[in-house]
Simulated scan of single mutants.
Amino acid sequence: MGSPATTALHRAVCTLLLASLGCVTGQPLGGESICTARSLARYNLAFAGKWSQTAFPKQYPLFRPPAQWSSLLGTTHSSDYSMWRENEYASNGLRDFVEQGEAWALMKEIEAAGEKLQSVHAVFSAPAVPSGTGQTASELEVHPRHSLVSFVVRIVPSPDWFVGVDSLDLCEGGRWKEQVALDLYPHDAGTDSGFTFSSPNFATIPQATVTEITSSSPSHPANSFYYPKLKSLPPMARVTLVRLRQSARAFVPPALDLVSRGNEITDNLSVPETPLDCEASLWSSWGLCNGPCGKLGVKSRTRYVLVQPANNGTPCPSLEEETECVPDNCV
Rank of each mutant, 00 (worst) to 15 (best):
S71R: 13
A250D: 14
G164L: 05
C289P: 05
A12N: 12
T7E: 11
T266Q: 13
Y227M: 02
G294Q: 01
A126V: 06
S247C: 11
P159N: 07
R145T: 14
G132K: 01
N44D: 12
A208I: 00
T266I: 07
P4W: 09
K50N: 07
A113D: 07
G194T: 00
K177R: 15
L244T: 12
L62A: 08
Q179F: 10
F124M: 05
G101M: 01
Y226V: 02
T314C: 06
L306R: 13
T36H: 08
F162V: 14
T204Q: 14
K116F: 08
T211D: 15
S285W: 06
C35T: 07
P327I: 03
H143P: 04
A203S: 12
Q118E: 15
A222F: 10
S193P: 01
D267A: 13
P272W: 07
G297M: 01
M236K: 01
E109Y: 05
W161M: 05
T7H: 00
G287Y: 05
K299P: 02
L230H: 04
C316H: 03
G173F: 08
S138R: 03
N44V: 12
M236Q: 07
T214E: 05
G164Y: 04
T75P: 03
S216T: 14
S285H: 10
I34E: 14
V252G: 09
A55K: 01
T323L: 03
Y304P: 01
W51K: 02
G190E: 00
Q179E: 15
V152W: 00
T76P: 00
Q59V: 00
K229P: 11
L306A: 10
K58L: 11
G313D: 03
Q53M: 10
T54P: 00
S232C: 11
L170S: 06
L106V: 10
Q27D: 13
F47I: 08
T15M: 10
E109A: 04
D257F: 13
P206C: 09
V152Y: 01
D160W: 02
E178M: 10
I110W: 05
S150C: 06
V120H: 04
Y81E: 06
F162C: 08
T196P: 01
S150M: 06
H77A: 02
H77F: 00
L168G: 02
Q246I: 07
N223K: 06
E324R: 09
K108I: 13
P254Y: 06
R238V: 12
P65A: 10
G294E: 00
